[in-house]
């Protein structure tokens, strides 16, 4: 099913009080898994065979990175572009798996070790597809979403940077598909 419009929401009350959870969100509020699962299930239920499986990915802040002890992370996003990028990723997923529904919520701001930074939920008629769509979703978020993290350690702070984000790069997209279908 094609994605519904996303938002970026700036406070906790707005995030948790929403009647219908948008599928694509960037927010400083604590992320909540259950409303997101309910939303992809409801959205997926209406399509094709209906929804028989929801697969979720929860990204959490790890206590160490490259041998360093992490005190906390700071996530920053180009919020409008990030939400549009999540929509783009969901469109890509629907091109490959037409009956699937994908949702992505990303948190920004200061996050302590153990807190949830990103939620991906994928609904599909069957579990095999749900797992694949979920994996594809998180791989693409890591590849192209304009979200950056700054790691604050005992010995200082640094931005963590990967490769240049090019959403039109087909090699990257194929790589994400390969991982999703491994």
């Amino acid at each position: 099913m094609l994605p519904q419009a996303g938002t970026h929401q700036h406070d906790e009350a707005q995030y948790t009080d929403s009647m219908a959870v948008p599928l694509f969100v960037v927010t400083p509020a604590r992320l909540a898994l259950e409303p997101l699962v309910a939303q992809v299930e409801i959205t997926g239920r209406l399509d094709g065979e209906g929804c028989g499986a929801v697969c979720t990915f929860i990204g959490v802040v790890r206590r160490s990175h490259a041998g360093r002890t992490v005190r906390y992370l700071e996530y920053e996003a180009h919020a409008t572009l990030a939400v549009r990028t999540f929509e783009r990723i969901a469109h890509e997923a629907v091109e490959r798996w037409p009956q699937a529904t994908l949702a992505i919520h990303h948190r920004v701001g200061r996050l302590a070790v153990g807190e949830t930074s990103v939620l991906v939920a994928a609904a599909a008629a069957h579990r095999d597809e749900a797992f694949r769509v979920c994996r594809y979703g998180i791989e693409r978020v890591k590849q192209i979403a304009p979200v950056w993290k700054r790691e604050v350690c005992e010995d200082g702070a640094h931005w963590i940077e990967g490769p240049v984000a090019d959403p039109a790069n087909d090699d990257l997209r194929r790589q994400a598909l390969v991982r999703a279908c491994a």
């Binding site: 993290k149 963590i160 959403p167």
Partner: peptide
């Protein structure tokens, strides 16, 4: 919207420059 360095811009545009993402 993602763009390219050679893309034309216009009065009033918001032009954002993005470092590599976390990956």
């Amino acid at each position: 919207d993602f763009s390219r360095m050679d893309a034309p811009i216009h009065d009033g545009d918001e032009v954002a420059f993005l470092p590599p993402v976390s990956g």
